[in-house]
Computed example of a mutant assay.
Amino acid sequence: MEIFNKALTKTDINVRFSFPTDKIECFAELEEGQSYNVNLKVKDRRQRVWTFSCWKRRNGSHPKPWLSGEWLRFVKHYGLKIGDKVVMVQENDHFLGSQYRIEAKRRIIVLGEEIWADVLMNC
């Protein structure tokens, strides 16, 4: 199940990745108020596991969630740029619980058609 997809901004590339507030419900520990931070193990297309710290604001009624931790290393590894897209997917496994996967996409034009292609690692 896709949690969200978002085009990257300058802040997402250089500081931290913010994601839509209404998607915080997908991260139960944050949604239930048990914590303001949870570490997520997220796999990319090549099955590499990244540890992202998922945060929400402590004060106020607008939690404004974001990812940090290995996020900037992920950005650099894939050579992501402003306007590229990140897709976060949650897969529920009966034995392992929630598993997260992340995909990096780049907009390209092929024969006049716009498509979103997978971004391969930065070589």
Rank of each mutant, 00 (worst) to 15 (best):
N59R: 13
L72D: 04
K10D: 10
L30K: 04
C26S: 12
E25K: 10
R58N: 12
I108C: 11
V87G: 03
S35I: 09
F17H: 04
S35F: 04
G33F: 11
R57V: 07
N122D: 12
Y100G: 04
L72G: 11
E32A: 12
N92S: 14
T9Y: 02
K85W: 00
W116L: 12
Y78V: 11
I115H: 00
G69S: 00
K23H: 09
E32Y: 13
F27W: 07
N59D: 14
T51N: 04
R58I: 10
F52R: 05
V87W: 03
V119R: 13
G97K: 02
K43M: 01
T51M: 01
K10Q: 14
I102N: 01
A104Y: 03
C54Q: 02
I3Y: 05
D84C: 09
H94F: 06
R16F: 01
R45F: 07
G83F: 08
C26V: 08
K81I: 07
I115G: 01
I24L: 12
E29I: 00
W55N: 09
D118I: 06
I109Y: 12
T21G: 12
L111I: 00
I108Y: 05
G79V: 06
G60K: 02
F74A: 08
F74Y: 13
I13V: 02
D84V: 10
E31I: 11
M88W: 06
S18I: 06
D118N: 14
F74E: 08
S61K: 11
E70M: 11
V110L: 07
F74N: 12
S98P: 15
K64Q: 14
Q99R: 15
K6V: 05
D84Y: 03
N5Y: 03
H77W: 11
K64N: 15
R57Q: 14
D22V: 14
G69P: 03
I82D: 15
V42D: 03
V49H: 03
L111S: 13
H94A: 08
G97Q: 12
R58K: 13
G79E: 08
D93H: 02
V110Y: 09
K43N: 05
L80N: 15
T21A: 10
C54I: 00
I13G: 06
D84W: 08
L30H: 02
W71F: 04
S68M: 02
I24F: 07
S98Y: 00
T11W: 04
M88E: 00
K41H: 07
H94I: 02
H77D: 15
W66N: 04
D84F: 05
R107N: 09
N37F: 03
K85F: 07
L8I: 06
L111G: 08
L80E: 09
D118F: 07
K76N: 15
Y78N: 11
V49C: 01
W55E: 00
G97V: 07
A28T: 11
D22T: 13
C54M: 02
M88K: 05
Y100E: 01
K23R: 15
S98V: 03
H77L: 13
N59T: 14
V89T: 02
D22W: 15
W116E: 10
N14L: 00
K105H: 03
M88R: 00
A7Q: 13
Y78R: 08
R48T: 11
Y36S: 13
P65C: 02
K56C: 10
D12R: 10
H77C: 15
A117W: 03
V75S: 14
F95M: 14
R101W: 05
Q34I: 01
F17W: 06
